[in-house]
């Protein structure tokens, strides 16, 4: 790799034969804080899945620095979590120690203290024994952030982290995200709130199945680019076969 921590080269990602992301090129140095934005169905979560190693490229390359690839934390959309499973907040957050405990290892005193500290940092001190089902959407998101904190990962992937949470929770969790950035972790977040991206993110990637623009939000989130992204997403034919880029 040429100095970048994460790089996509002519990247095409498919579900079955349907292309969700088409011929995407991007490059992020280590320690960047990047927002992936775009209309619904633009392929944002698909790209995040690929970055997490859950989806292999159909064509092109996705290069992730070896150190980062070994240390990935992924915060899913809340809908991916079965919150009615009657486990405690502590149980959920302690999963963040999975890479150290493995599937069969016990959560020791040291990890329990780390769980309490992570919960304190996200404003859920004292919630350890509460069942997940009794939390509000915002509190559940705080708990998921605490799990990511415990994972202590170098590459942090967040899928719509501020959806369905109130302004206070967004502000608190945004601070956690900024702390990660200050610690030189590479953070990639899928977001819908363009104002939030303009205010708080140094980098953005505008996606509409393919890349529309990348760089500082002020240059990426222009009216023209957003119009083009919307038009591309609306014009996309789901049944169209994926194809090789011309000239390759």
């Amino acid at each position: 790799m040429t100095g970048s921590a994460v790089r996509g080269v002519d990247l095409t990602l498919c579900y079955g034969e349907r292309a969700a992301v088409h011929h995407l090129d991007f490059e992020w140095p280590a320690g960047t804080l990047t927002a992936i934005v775009g209309p619904n169905g633009a392929g944002k979560s698909t790209l995040l899945n690929a970055l997490a190693g859950l989806l292999a490229p159909r064509t092109g390359r996705l290069e992730v620095d070896a150190e980062l690839a070994r240390s990935v934390a992924y915060l899913p959309q809340q809908s991916a979590l079965s919150a009615d499973v009657p486990v405690t907040v502590e149980d959920l957050v302690a999963l963040g120690a999975w890479s150290r405990t493995g599937p069969f290892g016990a959560v020791g005193t040291h990890e329990s203290a780390a769980v309490r500290e992570a919960l304190r940092r996200v404003g859920l001190h004292g919630f350890e024994r509460r069942l997940l089902a009794t939390l509000s959407a915002g509190q559940r998101q705080r708990a998921l952030f605490a799990r990511v904190l415990l994972e202590d990962a170098r590459l942090i992937l967040l899928d719509e982290p501020f959806n369905a949470v109130d302004a206070r929770t967004t502000a608190d969790l945004l601070q956690v995200l900024k702390d990660w950035h200050a610690e030189r972790r590479t953070v990639v977040a899928v977001l819908h709130d363009l104002e939030l991206v303009r205010e708080s993110f140094p980098d953005a990637l505008l996606l509409a199945r393919g890349g529309v623009a990348a760089g500082p939000p002020a240059e990426v989130l222009t009216a023209g680019n957003l119009r083009r992204a919307r038009a591309l997403a609306e014009a996309w034919v789901d049944d169209a076969a994926w194809c090789l880029r011309e000239g390759r």
Partner: peptide
């Protein structure tokens, strides 16, 4: 339990 609660986490 994790596979029931958050299958994506286990896949990762």
């Amino acid at each position: 339990v994790v596979e029931t609660l958050d299958p994506g986490f286990l896949r990762l």
